[in-house]
Nucleic acid binder design. Structure first.
Lengths: 155, 155
DNA sequence: CGCCGATGACAACCAGGGTGTCATACTTGG
DNA sequence: CCAAGTATGACACCCTGGTTGTCATCGGCG
């Protein structure tokens, strides 16, 4: 058993934690919507826009490993709810840029603010260096899992 | 902005990676089923049994943050497929222990073996210490997210 | 022994998320 | 410069991971 094997096993442990964590995060997100009802999908869209500025639908999909069709639905919903709006895209006539409205910004700020409070509690319990390490590891995992989906067109 | 705030923000970044990672792991799991078709749920059950030995249905649910009813369905399916079997539980007459059969063991060994190969590739790209740090961080996150669900009976 | 929480069994339901398809818009190699 | 291939929008259909609800039975405990 090499060191590599040992590390791989620890990674399997990480793997195993992803599921429970994901579910709890989901529940958390659901409850973190106080007056403003915003689904996990819409929330993900708004979050992405908040971080990266206006993006097209397919870009959002790729950034979150979601199909563009799914994102489209979420964006359509957000449009109906007045949380985002379409802006002209200089680089593409049909593919408009999606940008948060004032209302959308308010909602996502509120949600992330709440989340920040929660995470401050967690922050007390972990070593900041460990968190950086976590980012490195998860980023590599996301990347290398992506590699294995080769020519999957239409995504 | 305190150090705590900074760490909390990094944790939010981690948070954001959980979704994509979860989805990619899901897809990975789906494809990792070669001849033996095993759903994500059944796989989670078998994995848990492999690690912890025979457990009751509610125990599996708690270990994975899943409702016992959902786990029950997965276990029922696994029973039908001959992947697990019921064993008497000395501590409870109705609540049998669920244990993998030879076939079930073969399946989960195969799947985890495949996964191990994949993860060896990832292991080359990360620092082993970082992986340990990741485990610490994720464990704390799972725990502290659990805390916030207080008296949720029936789970 | 009586009560209450835990379990099994089954049903209903929800939502996150993917796939398929067609028409239109973009891009690039010949 | 045009044809062929690739991206995008729009809409439909579907799957399944996962929850909630309910009831009857079982186990533990004051």
């Amino acid at each position: 058993m090499t060191d590599l094997d040992r590390t791989a096993e620890r990674l399997a442990d990480v793997y195993l934690l992803i599921g429970p964590l994901y579910r709890r995060v989901l529940r958390e997100v659901e409850e973190a919507a106080p007056s403003n009802r915003v689904s996990a999908g819409v929330r993900a869209v708004l979050d992405q826009l908040r971080r990266n500025g206006p993006m097209t639908v397919p870009e959002i999909g790729r950034s979150q490993s979601l199909s563009r069709q799914f994102v489209q639905r979420m964006v359509d919903g957000a449009l109906d709810a007045g949380l985002v709006e379409r802006a002209d895209n200089p680089r593409h006539r049909r593919s408009k840029l999606i940008a948060p409205t004032a209302a959308g910004t308010a909602v996502i700020d509120d949600v992330t603010g709440r989340e920040h409070e929660r995470l401050r509690g967690v922050a007390e319990l972990v070593d900041p260096g460990d968190v950086e390490a976590t980012m490195r590891v998860l980023a590599v995992m996301v990347d290398s899992l992506a590699e294995l989906e080769p020519e999957k067109l239409e995504r």
